[in-house]
Simulated scan of single mutants.
Amino acid sequence: MATTKKKKTPKEQPIILVTNDDGITAPGIRNLVEAVRGLGTIVVVAPDKPQSGMGHAITIGSPLRLSKVQLFEGVEAWQCTGTPVDCVKLAVDKILHRKPDICVSGINHGANHSINVIYSGTMSAAVEAAIESIPSIGFSLLDYSVEADFSGARQYAREIVETLLKKKMDNHMVLNVNIPAIPAQLIKGIRVCRQAYGKYEEDFLERDDPHGRKYFWLTGEFKNLDKGKDTDVWALENNYISLVPVQFDLTNYVLKTKLEKTWP
């Protein structure tokens, strides 16, 4: 008796969640959408206004609102009144109803190298995705201008995402990718790095408002305190894209081992 072969069903397209911290209308997120267009089904969930420097903040004292927007041709997009982390949480729970295959955050306007990763809403969105067992990448371009040239960032973002989608990714993978603000042809390539040790020398400018009440305006200058040639800061200063694997487990395992032997 003849047997009939079961028809092969086409492979399901990966779902790519796109978010950011500069807001859904920022040029960076538009360029990120274009970078990953055609690599899977794209869904955008991003803040309705800039949320830079929010870190891993979540909204707990006020309601969150989601509204569908038509900003990216052929792409489902939602804006959220909350933080970047709120966006990831709502995307998984209320919009996608399943975990996406990858989450990409950015492209941020400005650096997220070194200690910036702690404050970054862009990177916190990526870290939140990894907490939810979604492989993720945060992309940042070292240019704060709204007229920044994203062509190199767009090219390399696509290359990185396309490469990773072909591999079996760790569910808790988080990559922090920074791109120097130079023409694409001058970028020397991608370097896997460690996070440099640096900090901001901060100053609070003290001023008076029109009513005579004092207020403070935070200013500061980033200082790289790490002279290693294997860091993200070194790579960027030498025209490489830096790629730093980061994690949400903040345990200091070296100190833990020491304390286990000496405590109390």
Rank of each mutant, 00 (worst) to 15 (best):
A2S: 10
A2T: 13
T4L: 05
P10W: 09
P10T: 13
K11W: 02
V18H: 13
T19I: 04
N20I: 02
N20W: 00
D22R: 12
T25H: 07
A26M: 04
G28S: 06
V43R: 03
V44C: 06
V44F: 03
A46Y: 03
P47T: 01
K49V: 08
M54H: 13
G55K: 00
I58G: 05
L64H: 02
R65K: 15
L66C: 04
S67E: 12
K68E: 11
K68W: 11
Q70A: 13
L71W: 00
G74C: 13
G74S: 07
E76G: 04
W78Y: 13
Q79W: 06
C80D: 05
T81G: 04
G82Y: 08
G82I: 09
D86P: 01
C87K: 02
C87N: 07
A91E: 13
L96P: 05
R98D: 02
K99C: 07
P100H: 10
D101N: 10
G110F: 05
A111S: 15
A111H: 06
A111M: 03
H113C: 10
N116H: 03
N116Y: 14
V117N: 10
Y119T: 14
Y119N: 12
A125W: 09
E128A: 15
I134N: 07
I134E: 02
S136N: 08
I137S: 01
G138C: 03
F139R: 07
F139I: 00
F139A: 08
S140E: 05
V146W: 14
V146H: 12
D149E: 02
D149A: 12
F150M: 14
G152F: 01
G152R: 12
R154S: 05
R154E: 12
Q155N: 12
A157D: 01
R158I: 06
R158E: 09
E162I: 00
L164R: 07
L165I: 01
K166I: 06
K167M: 09
K168P: 00
M169I: 04
H172C: 03
M173V: 10
V174C: 05
N176I: 00
N178H: 04
N178S: 15
N178L: 01
P180G: 08
A184F: 00
Q185S: 14
G189W: 15
G189V: 03
G189R: 10
I190Q: 04
I190D: 01
C193S: 09
C193I: 11
C193Q: 08
R194L: 01
Y197F: 09
K199Q: 14
Y200R: 10
Y200G: 11
Y200K: 13
E201S: 14
E202T: 15
F204Q: 12
R207F: 14
R207L: 11
D208N: 12
D209F: 11
P210E: 05
H211V: 11
K214M: 13
F216V: 03
F216I: 02
L218I: 09
K223Y: 03
K227F: 08
G228T: 09
G228E: 10
D232S: 06
A235S: 10
L236S: 09
E237H: 11
N239H: 15
S242E: 10
S242L: 04
L243N: 08
L243R: 14
P245I: 09
F248H: 15
L250D: 13
L255C: 07
L255T: 12
L255M: 11
L255G: 09
T257Q: 13
T257M: 13
K258P: 05
L259D: 14
W263S: 10
W263E: 12
P264W: 10
P264C: 15
